[in-house]
């Protein structure tokens, strides 16, 4: 069970959160075309190491938080609000 320090609620157990993958991909402008949307929806760096990702504190403040987590050790380095920069 990961322990996630929600910036709004404090340290909370992982099972209060839902996961939603890579937070580095950004939705393209509406007319950017299929390739840009392909990159947004499908293509992933899938790093072995630090990964910035979305988690939703559904059983708490219901904010989407951006977490920087190591995919090998599961260590969490930063947790930021939805519009804050990670680094």
């Amino acid at each position: 069970m990961l322990l996630i320090h929600c910036p709004y609620c404090g340290a909370r157990a992982q099972d209060e959160f839902h996961y939603r993958g890579d937070a580095n991909v950004e939705r393209p402008a509406p007319h950017a075309g299929q390739k840009a949307f392909y990159d947004f929806v499908y293509a992933r760096d899938n790093p072995r190491g630090w990964h910035v990702e979305w988690w939703h504190h559904y059983a708490g403040c219901r904010r989407w938080v951006k977490i920087e987590r190591n995919t090998v050790t599961h260590e969490i380095r930063t947790v930021k609000g939805p519009t804050q920069d990670t680094r």
């Binding site: 839902h18 939603r20 937070a23 939705r27 979305w54 939703h56 559904y58 219901r62 904010r63 989407w64 939805p82 519009t83």
Partner: peptide
């Protein structure tokens, strides 16, 4: 969750 995601992160 879908609505919250788009409201908070895509179109804040």
């Amino acid at each position: 969750e879908h609505m919250e995601f788009y409201a908070q992160t895509v179109w804040p």
